[in-house]
């Protein structure tokens, strides 16, 4: 098992290196010349050339890449074109808000998904089951920004239960977290359902029933633990979905996280910030998957013994 985890760790590092290579090549080959963007509109060609030299853009490709990776390892994600500051502090300052939002979104998704997935699996063919199957499709077919605006329209503008936008109190978190969590919850419930159905077929579940345990104890105490593994792997994968989702959700709700930072950077073509957020998100996705790998042995003793 230690070998397996070590291999996953090496893979994660390689993937991150590849991610860095791709963002680097994107920056290198794209038509927008960063030196021109930094210099501004009224710059002379000499000024542009000076900036290009200063940033090392006149060096060979390989050297530039090594330099780039070296900088990344020191936490240097470059300087913002418009805000004239380092990108990393900008991202770090906004990371907590995003983490709060993501955590709340995951709680919503997992709570709804687990509850309805389990009910759907136990009462196969029943009302909940059919609703879950149908709603899971509606969830993945919904444009997130429309749902965000709809929630705002109904619960903030019309009913006035929650604030329109902003950050600070628990009431601010509710609508953004619902937007993030509800759409994925249907699909999540579907995954939980199929994992549970797989487990409920086993003989030990019948044995548990036969020895007179209550239905609740059989399902939650005996079946669920064995169905948890794919469910945990799903959370790891979902972190990627969430990272994409936060851009839209934070833009609509004015949530001061890295998604909003990226959105503002998009409007000003502030490439280092966009790339910085992309890198941090990729890091989060790799870490999320890695975390799922590391948690698995604690959830499932069968993996521990391998």
């Amino acid at each position: 098992m230690a070998f397996f985890l070590a291999r996953r760790l090496v893979q994660a590092v390689l993937i991150l290196l590849g991610v860095a290579a791709i963002t680097f090549l994107l920056l290198y080959f794209l038509p927008a010349d960063p030196a021109v963007l930094i210099a501004g509109r009224s710059a002379t060609p000499q000024m542009v050339a000076a900036i290009r030299h200063e940033l090392g853009f006149d060096q060979p490709l390989g050297m530039q890449f090594l330099h780039y990776v070296g900088n990344l390892l020191h936490g240097d994600l470059g300087r913002s074109y418009t805000q004239k500051t380092e990108v990393l502090p900008l991202i770090l300052a906004r990371l907590p808000a995003t983490l709060i939002l993501m955590a709340a979104g995951i709680v919503v998704e997992v709570a709804l998904g687990l509850t309805f997935g389990i009910i759907a699996a136990v009462r196969r063919g029943g009302f909940v089951d059919r609703s879950v199957m149908m709603l899971s499709f509606v969830g993945v077919s919904s444009p997130q920004f429309v749902v965000a605006l709809l929630l705002l329209y109904v619960f903030a503008a019309t009913l006035g239960w929650f604030p329109m936008s902003g950050f600070g109190t628990a009431r601010h978190v509710v609508l953004p977290a619902l937007t993030l969590g509800v759409l994925g919850a249907g699909w999540y419930a579907r995954m939980v359902r199929s994992a549970m159905i797989e487990v409920l077929r086993h003989d030990y579940v019948r044995t548990a029933h036969a020895k007179g345990l209550s239905g609740r104890r059989v399902v939650l105490g005996h079946a669920l633990p064995n169905a948890l593994l794919p469910i945990i792997a799903m959370v790891g994968i979902d972190i990627g979905q969430f990272m994409s989702g936060v851009v839209v959700v934070e833009a609509v709700y004015g949530w001061p996280g890295i998604g909003q930072l990226a959105w503002q950077a998009i409007q000003q073509v502030d490439v280092p910030i966009i790339m910085g957020v992309t890198l941090v998100s990729a890091l989060a996705i790799v870490l999320g998957n890695l975390l799922a790998d590391f948690v698995a042995p604690f959830v499932d003793p069968r993996i521990r013994s391998q």
Binding site: T23, L26, L30, S244, I274, T278, I285
Partner: peptide
């Protein structure tokens, strides 16, 4: 490993 939307955003923002 790339978040699809962010990669698309980065590309689209750079490409006019």
């Amino acid at each position: 490993a790339f978040p699809a939307l962010l990669l698309a955003i980065a590309l689209a923002a750079l490409l006019r």
